[in-house]
Amino acid sequence: MIPLIEREIVGERGWVEEGEFLDLIGITQSMPGALAINISTCVGYKVAGAWGALSATLGAIIPPFLSILLAASFLMAAKDVPIVERAFQGIRPAVVALIAASVLRLSRAAGMGGKGAAISIAVALIVLVSGVHPVYVAAIGMGASALWAIARAGRPERI
């Protein structure tokens, strides 16, 4: 999706410059929420202030919103049709594979070592074994990461 956004707002419209776009990607990656929508909000604000931000955000949300409503009503109506269920029987393992692939890709990108892997595995086990809500795990993880970042200030990076 990023190349598509880049072509539109850097190339076609010239709303932001190349270097600024990279900064924008950097900051949206450090923020919660969906990347594409965060970028839209930011660019909208830059081009036309608060109203620009609002309309850019709505513009990024409404088309997927409508298409998911369509898809949802299809899925709810067709879920008991045998041929649809057979296709989904093939699709479900692929969906799990997509998430697993994403876990592998993120681990590689993080340059994960033994200590990092131990943390990730511990997090997974906490959710799987104790049944703690992932939302709480994420909240605690955020707090712990923040404390860790402050405590390690000035020391060399190592995970």
Binding site: A100, V127, V137
Partner: peptide
């Protein structure tokens, strides 16, 4: 740091 948490959550 938080990336490690996300990876663990996604794996679960």
């Amino acid at each position: 740091g938080f990336r490690l948490v996300v990876i663990g959550l996604m794996a679960s």
